[in-house]
Design a protein around this nucleic acid. Structure first.
Lengths: 265, 265
DNA sequence: AAAGCTAAAAATCTCGAGAAAATGTGTTGA
DNA sequence: TCAACACATTTTCTCGAGATTTTTAGCTTT
């Protein structure tokens, strides 16, 4: 059955199925806008404004927002409406560590249970990711979105043979979260380190069925992504923290670094 | 209007406060009704019927159902309404294994980071659980609900000092799921094995800060609960499986326990 | 009888308006 | 200057009714 609500790992990038309902359409658009940072963390999501923007009734948008709570992308506060889930550096670290724990275990199980068809999918996904990384290096317009998509698919295919649906579901949620802050950091500086080499080594170890090496590399890879964000946050203090509290009023540009210090006085 | 239950310890969730909105009220009541099996797995949740039962408008109930998707207790199928998440034996095993992985890791971290206040909370929660287990043995009316509540709190307190909010959140979801099928199985047969002894040994190892022993015992404890369900499902074939597909038509009595028992005679 | 088509019934999905609550603003008084 | 109160605006929350889709039931045909 085509589940209306699905997490990141469940839905393929190109919309294979059109949204069957307005609620689902609004849900998908909103999810995309949140993940890609058009609705920054902490922003208040006013139904009255958003219903015009997304061309649906108030009740419909409300339901879409309620569905987004499933992905932990939106939080609902009693009589005070909805807002985008806040992000802090410690939260990002938590997301990363939990992801390492689950994704390494999932890869281990996937490598144990995976058959030839799975292997072929992994090869294919790695190939596509490689091509996207080449385009990214050439600084082609719009290559970032494609790279994000293929990076997600590569990670997804790696663990696709893991028999635990719950593990995959949780990883889907965590991946969405990490994509959110990765996108934010990209706004400041493009990816500097050699991710392709990391991906390649993970890929080779996986195909060689070297479980120990593959999980170790994958864990290091995820952790290193976080370290990059971390050092970036130190260079630009208040890139993440303010977004949590400041809560851009109505789509206001995140007036990030300035306000942080003034709060104390 | 609002709360019709008379029990003192009504709502198990973290918030002791009253629901601030009708949506939240319907959400909590529905969640309770699903977990306790009044809406069995797979049942279709018709808004038109439920809005009368829960005394709210259609849109309100719809939003409450959307919120329940967050807990993976309800699934939404585009243009075909909502239904209670199905359960199968393999799903239960998945829930159990994932729970073991996460809960053991959480306990390890909790035991490492926990201070005296945490220790005191664990002692208190264990004491309460012990009392509830005594009542359960005496076959006191309504003791099951109290035991469930305190069992949940004991497990929750054990990992309360784990610094990972995401791990705790995922465990909350998994625990709700496991409570759901545990309740179903209780309809057929009361808990036979000596859970108190298991709890006591876990408790002692935790307080003694014997990480290795504590996590090993906890893992075995959770796994053993599943084994009990599993053997029960073998004795009464079709206790869980049918609930997935059969999907009681319109609030039809699932006739779980009765049919299963009759099968044997 | 089984399969296929048509019409009625039920359920889902959607919107706009109105009541309740929260937020913002201005005024008054110490 | 600051605090407190009252009022006005915004926003959330809620319901009922109408349009679209799915499901069911009955009827015809092979």
């Amino acid at each position: 059955m085509n589940q209306m609500h699905a997490h990141a790992f469940d839905i393929g990038g190109p919309p294979l199925d059109e949204p069957k309902t307005l609620v689902e359409g609004a849900y998908r658009q909103l999810r995309r806008d949140i993940i890609e940072g058009r609705h920054p963390p902490g922003e208040k999501l006013r139904v009255e404004h958003l219903k015009d923007q997304y061309q649906v009734g108030a009740g419909t948008l409300r339901e879409a927002l309620a569905l987004l709570v499933s992905d932990s992308l939106v939080v609902a506060q009693g009589q005070r409406g909805f807002r985008v889930s806040p992000i802090s550096l410690s939260d990002i670290e938590d997301i990363t560590r939990t992801r390492v724990l689950l994704e390494c275990e999932a890869l281990r199980q996937s490598m144990t249970a995976g058959d030839e068809a799975w292997e072929a999918d992994v090869v294919s996904a790695f190939h596509r990711l490689t091509r996207a990384e080449e385009k990214l290096a050439s600084d082609v317009e719009g290559a970032v979105n494609e790279w994000e998509e293929r990076n997600r698919l590569f990670h997804e295919k790696l663990i696709a043979a893991c028999p635990s649906r719950w593990t995959r579901q949780f990883l889907g949620v965590l991946y969405q979260q990490s994509e959110r802050y990765r996108r934010i950091s990209v706004l400041t500086r493009p990816v500097p380190r050699d991710v392709h080499d990391e991906h390649e080594k993970i890929f080779e170890a996986t195909i060689a069925r070297d479980t120990k090496t593959a999980t170790k590399l994958l864990g290091g890879h995820i952790m290193r992504t976080f370290r990059a964000i971390e050092s970036l946050a130190e260079l630009h203090p208040g890139v993440f923290q303010p977004l949590q509290a400041a809560a851009a009023e109505n789509g206001a540009r995140p007036a990030v670094a300035n306000d942080a210090a003034r709060d104390k006085s």
